[in-house]
């Protein structure tokens, strides 16, 4: 299997990369780690005349605590996140999601920005970004803008990043207080994309009531999504009054485009999704309560 021929560009600055995109239009595609793009090229599911490689753009890489956020450069590898004590300390959900991505050989090349920009419906990082209210830094030929995560994921494999724009970094807010975080997914084999999964973040007040609770689902629609009904059920509730299994049912009840394919029917995915929400809630709320 060989990709169709393409021209290769290796800019050394983000501005240069964006200028190339503006010049080449939709015949060009950015490549970072390439762990999703190269298989698509090899199978010729995607064909581009130009690839713009971000591998030599130095200032897109790195993990940094900036005030109440963890700023992760777009081409930071998933392995770098996995090894980062700063990330594990500031954003536990990000650290816990990372080992679920593919295999070690994939995480050594795959990048944080690449995963978010590819926006696979069953990928972990989009759900993490949604659950934590992450913000995306985007560079365009006319300047920089920030996109909130609910506005970032716009559908199947699509994001708010335009053809001439570049995702440069993600800012994950650092949650403080009595917090707990969990991500659960079910896949047939270790490293496969999940059949369904859920990420839960929760903050409790001093009386064990939910001050802030978010639930993001993946593998259960065209893109990762927050569950508004389940979050509404959590709002202000005493943690003891929340029935985890019921919460799972509420989270999947109103979903209207659950995928159905040879890996599982939509009814099956719904059941798996409900179980993942319930498990993630149990773990996250337990952590928030007892630390």
């Amino acid at each position: 299997m060989k990709p169709a021929p393409f021209d290769y560009h290796a800019p050394t600055t983000a501005e240069e990369a964006v200028a190339l995109l503006a010049e080449l239009g939709d015949t060009a595609k950015l490549i970072a780690g390439g762990q999703s793009l190269v298989p698509m090229l090899a199978l010729r599911l995607a064909v581009f005349e130009h690839l713009v490689d971000l591998g030599r753009v130095e200032n897109l890489r790195g993990i940094e605590r900036v005030g109440d956020s963890l700023r992760v450069g777009a081409t930071t590898t998933q392995s770098a996140v996995e090894r980062s004590e700063v990330a594990a300390d500031a954003v536990p959900l990000l650290a816990r999601a990372t080992p679920l991505i593919g295999h070690v050989q994939i995480r050594n090349r795959g990048t944080v920005g690449g995963s978010l920009a590819h926006a696979d419906a069953a990928a972990e990082y989009p759900a993490v970004a949604l659950a934590l209210d992450a913000e995306m830094e985007v560079l365009s030929p006319t300047g920089r803008r920030t996109v909130a995560s609910p506005d970032f994921f716009t559908g199947l494999w699509s994001t708010a990043v335009g053809d001439d724009e570049l995702l440069t970094a993600v800012r994950f807010p650092v949650w403080s207080g009595r917090c707990g975080f969990a991500i659960r997914e079910f896949a047939r084999r270790h490293g496969d994309f999940a059949i369904a999964g859920a990420a839960v973040a929760v903050e409790l007040d001093g009386d064990d009531r939910v001050r802030r609770g978010t639930i993001a689902l993946f593998g259960l629609g065209p893109s990762a999504q927050r569950s508004d009904p389940a979050e509404a059920a959590l709002g202000g509730a005493a943690v003891d009054d929340v029935d985890a299994d019921e919460l799972g049912q509420v989270a999947v009840a109103s979903l209207d485009s659950v995928p159905s394919d040879l890996h599982g029917s939509s009814a099956y995915r719904r059941r798996v999704g409900a179980a993942m929400v319930a498990d993630a809630w149990r773990a996250a709320s337990e952590e928030a309560r007892h630390g």
């Binding site: 290769y8 490549i31 490689d53 591998g55 070690v104 050989q105 090349r109």
Partner: peptide, 15 residues
């Protein structure tokens, strides 16, 4: 690749 295990079918030689 620089000591990290990677799949060489998912890396272009130019990279």
């Amino acid at each position: 690749l620089d000591g990290d295990a990677v799949r060489s079918c998912l890396v272009f030689a130019v990279q």
